[in-house]
Amino acid sequence: MSTTLADLVAQLDAFRDATLAQLAVADSLDALEAVRASSVGRTRGALNDYKAQLPKLAGADKPTFGARFNAVKVELEAAIDARHAALSASAPAAAALDLSMPARRQWRGAKHPVTIVLEEIEGIFRDLGFTIATGPEAEHEWYNFGALNFPPDHPAMDMHDTLYLERGGLLRTHTSPVQIRTLQSYPPPIRIIAPGNVFRRDFFDASHAPMFAQIEGMAVDEGISFVDLKATLANFANRFFGETKTRFRPSFFPFTEPSAEMDVACRICNGAGCATCKQTGWVEILGCGMMHPAVLESAGVDSQKYSGWAFGMGPARMALQRFGIPDIRIQYDSDIAFLEQFAQ
């Protein structure tokens, strides 16, 4: 062995690396013991040979090499211990592993079922050229009602039992205020969807909750028509539900004219009529319509030049259907026995 410091250190490092490599492939306690004995072993260990070189070094180099030696020794011993622990845990040796035993697992996370449905809807509309807009949950009355053509003291207000804030404003009853905020911010053409939570003064029951997710959609441009509305939403339904029959029928919303609701053929009975669809063969999916000129004007959009359509639907109820969840309240319990089912 050479006795210059640099050479000695290089050799020591090489020895360390070689030993670590042997450890990595030692696949039984016996093999490990062999490596241990030949490296750091008190009697036959090769490390002893390096220690023996110490006196041959120049005086100034002795502490440097000494420290280095100690570091390598500590590192190797630790590595041997770690390997020993690992082999003990998985002992007996590889040949004797019972491979049928369960794996070591990690906790698996999951999105909430309503989020899963929302993201699926978002994905379909993204393909149809829509981007995502958002808005606040605590809103001005004007954005929630006035701008959306709700006449004051009109029975249409009964469709929106509202939670008001003591210092003014309200919790939005639908995501439609985002229509106005977006139209005030960006010029047409506009194609957006707006997911978010909305609030109604509805007491909890199997199908009602005071807060629930809604997703709004809006397309505004020159020449946007009722056919565009039907085509886009029917296309959505076919992608979300699989090839399905849709039905559009009259409805009423102050902010759309004509107003419509879209039904899809009941998935439970295939349209024959059952308890789920109240014997009609159809399940209501969303409300929609051509945007009322007053709504466009309230957001500063020229309703002679531009037209648009909008829709709103409830992913919370769609999640009930999609996953066969019997009661909307389960969605808000956040019981891990429920949520873990969505960790796919």
Partner: peptide
């Protein structure tokens, strides 16, 4: 309503970026 076409027609791309939120 169902007598109207469900034909998907060309559209122009919108101007609204995805909400940073």
């Amino acid at each position: 309503y169902d007598s109207f076409s469900n034909e998907l027609r060309p559209f122009r791309r919108g101007t609204v970026p995805n909400s940073p939120l």
